[in-house]
């Protein structure tokens, strides 16, 4: 059956690791990386496949670094 699923793409080098997106995500999809980016910030990354593409993370991100996708998937 076709299901609606989401995905996010984080611009890792622009992320400042503020963690504001984590609190905004209803599906606990985001956590901070162990690694740091070129600026020395831990960055947001996906930690599960439950993203619905709701855009919450992207609209609260002060640096606008998250792109959100939503589409049908057959599973």
């Amino acid at each position: 059956m076709a299901k609606i699923k989401g995905d996010i793409l984080v611009n890792v080098e622009r992320c400042k690791g503020c963690e504001v997106c984590i609190a905004a995500c209803p599906s606990s999809t985001i956590a901070m990386s162990k690694e740091v980016n070129g600026k020395g910030y831990h960055f947001a990354m996906k930690v599960n496949n439950d993203c619905t593409g709701c855009m919450n993370c992207a609209i609260v991100c002060p640096d606008g670094v998250i792109t959100v996708y939503r589409g049908k998937i057959s599973e």
């Binding site: 990386s33 690694e35 990354m45 993203c51 855009m55 792109t67 959100v68 996708y69 939503r70």
Partner: peptide, 24 residues
């Protein structure tokens, strides 16, 4: 670093519902 949990079927340009505006 390999990015985990990528949904390649979803991550396509036609599925973009939000991206940073070019006016920034």
């Amino acid at each position: 670093m390999e990015e985990p949990f990528v949904k390649t079927e979803i991550r396509k340009d036609e599925n973009i519902v939000y991206k940073r505006t070019d006016l920034l």
